[in-house]
Amino acid sequence: MLGIRVIPCLDVTNGRVVKGTNFVNLKDAGDPVEVAKQYNSDGADEIVFLDITATHEGRNTTVDLVRRTAEKVFIPLTVGGGIRTLEDIRNLLNAGADKVSLNSSAVKNPSIIKEASDKFGIQCIVVAIDAKKTRENKWNVFVHGGRIDTGLDAILWAKKAVEFGAGEILLTSMDKDGTKDGYDLELLKAISSSVGIPVIASGGAGKVEHFSKAYEYGASAVLVASLFHYKELTIKEVKEHLMSQNIPVRQIHSA
């Protein structure tokens, strides 16, 4: 059975992890390579780096970071944040990223999805959607870290992204993000049932039951940030819960 993927997400800037992590056993808990290695041995199914660097120079450190990580970590690696051009995508893929996640740039210029998936294959193009509820069963797409309402309907945008050649959707609920009271299941279901490609649920996870709910509502994968970084939950606990609910996961190998 295809397992639901459990994906830790690291915010990075200038080659460093942004939020402090709680890995006391690591030599340098601020080094994304060290943290990614740790998550890999903890049983992560993929790793996401979200680059929140604002400057061009800083971005080069991200390419270098991807290069160093890909030499040590042999599970899929996705990079998102500030990717604007085919050149940006090429640089990241050549450095060893498996997928790139497009957000604001895809909203601004959807044809980049098509150009990128034609050139590099749909399997490496993730479209990230930050959605916020505007009324009952209606969500809008927000950009620039959730500050700007594009007015686009999230469901229609998701369908359009698929038409343009997205291979996967990373769906973040702006309403639930940081609340720890669970994923936005209605949003998840609305998007997942509208598209034929995998959907990664993001924003709101707080306890193990939230992950089995996400699966039930159509998530192919779940994204987790601070909950793992601060060891409020471990990947092992999440996977054990999923298995107890007869939800398929890739089992963790003891290192």
């Binding site: 295809l2 199914d45 291979g167 996967e168 034929g196």
Partner: peptide, 13 residues
Amino acid sequence: DKTLKFPHMGWNN
């Protein structure tokens, strides 16, 4: 089965 997602993406045994 139209509920299956494509690409077949992820870890399978």
